[in-house]
Design a protein around this nucleic acid. Sequence first.
DNA 1: TATTAATTGCAACTAAGTTGCATTAATAAA
DNA 2: TTTATTAATGCAACTTAGTTGCAATTAATA
Lengths: 128, 128
Amino acid sequence: MSNSRNTIARTEILNLIREAGEALSHADLQASLGDLCNRVTIYRVLDRLLEEHLIHKIADVDGNITYAACHDCSGRHLHNHIHFRCEECQSVTCLNQVEPEFKLPRQYVVHSMNFTVSGLCPKCSGKR
Amino acid sequence: MSNSRNTIARTEILNLIREAGEALSHADLQASLGDLCNRVTIYRVLDRLLEEHLIHKIADVDGNITYAACHDCSGRHLHNHIHFRCEECQSVTCLNQVEPEFKLPRQYVVHSMNFTVSGLCPKCSGKR
DNA sequence: TATTAATTGCAACTAAGTTGCATTAATAAA
DNA sequence: TTTATTAATGCAACTTAGTTGCAATTAATA
């Protein structure tokens, strides 16, 4: 059971993230939401949605943070899929079907992963 | 040929990064350097070292940036090894021997990668 | 040694994220 | 339905991270 409340800001932010074709930054959300809520509220709602495993956080190699919807994280919240950041159109997308394989020495305990590849997305590489 | 100059700040920063057993943040460097140079200089030296492919940049899932030495990047500067961030001791290390395997759809053009796994490092997982 | 341009320090600035606190409002209980 | 409880919000102020312009300095070359 959750004591998280269904507020307008929460509903709107979750909808925006779920319906976006790509991962959204705090700035993206703020632009879309206009004055529906304060920018601090956006930070706090994002924190809650992360805790509730409804969204996940993505950092590219420069530390830029974006957020994308979780698809099936009720059980485990591992997100071992690859994210792609396009250097041309700046979009960040989840490649849910691409799971990297790797093997760490036994003593390492893995809690979470952040795999981001940068380059040109299909749309932008085609334009060249 | 390079028109980059061998200054005291550059030499010291590169030494610190090369001799550290783990990746260093701007704050780590500033703490070690004391007043050897201005904090702005550290940012600028790091940018130069990145351009010269002597170090690489690592972002963990929270967007925290650290820097580690490159080992053999004269040819390609791809850094497709895994980085591990320990949630206990906060250290970030390069696992140079661990290269993840994955396959992107053909249209994607890859320029750089950022793979960071978080959890407990061998030292900290042993203490439990 | 003199010249040139890369590098630095400084101050001021922008951008990103956090905190405390009074107010508002979603939910559960009466 | 009304009331009580406490999660959530707005606001202002703050911290932290990184950037920029410019004058002064200094490494490297001639």
